[in-house]
Amino acid sequence: MLHIKDLHANIDGTEILKGLSLDIKPGEIHAIMGPNGSGKSTLASVLAGNEDYEITGGSVTFGDKDLLDLSTEDRAREGLFLAFQYPVEIPGVSNINFLRTAVNEIRQYKGEEPMSAGDFLKLVKERSALVELDGKLANRSVNEGFSGGEKKRNEVFQMAMLEPKLAILDETDSGLDIDALKIVAQGVNAMRSPERSFVVITHYQRLLDYIVPDFVHVLYKGKIVKSGSKELALELEARGYDWIKEEVSA
């Protein structure tokens, strides 16, 4: 589904991704872990099409499309979703209007009819319940005045509404207490399917107790330096990253 090959990316002339490769098949869950500043959010931004980054090498294919050729909106319309580490507040744009616009622009791209208001509201009700997001929040401005946990649940709610083929969750667990974390995980698990894949970026093994990954990768200095099964996450939790850093420099 997603093939990243030897990807290099710069920001303001500094190389952040330095030859990153990753393969994701339909239905798989990949966890990406790694120390702060190693390039995890950069990878997510580059995949989502953030133009602040310059791609200097490598390729990314998504389904049968050259992902790097697509605009940000077309990537989303092709089924890529990024749950942001820091969701922005957009005063004055209602969560609901914005989602309706998004749903219908995606449908239009696929040559489908707009969703009826009734069906849309039904879907909102059903999917917001998945992450126990208060109906009131759905009517407020996008993320405005939301708590940290509400912002993260709103990201998962949007994911559930847009039904992407691939969802990248960038530290969706950071700053959540255990109850909120379970809710987020429950939302993600409800959306699991043999066709839908996930990339879960996290610092903490804890999340992976609830969203069980098929693969765990360590991203360090702009590259995947180690990959393994879910046990790797437990090892990282127990031993930290120093041994990885040593392996890399050895």
């Binding site: 940000t72 909106e73 319309r77 957009i90 004055g92 744009v93």
Partner: peptide
């Protein structure tokens, strides 16, 4: 707010429509 434009586009909303929503939002009050 270019970050907001990016956020909207990342949800599948075209750039023109994204800016439209933000203009409307800015003047809404």
């Amino acid at each position: 707010d270019e970050e907001a434009v990016f956020y909207l586009r990342a949800r599948g909303i075209g750039e023109v429509m994204a800016r439209k929503l933000l203009v409307e939002a800015f003047l809404a009050d």
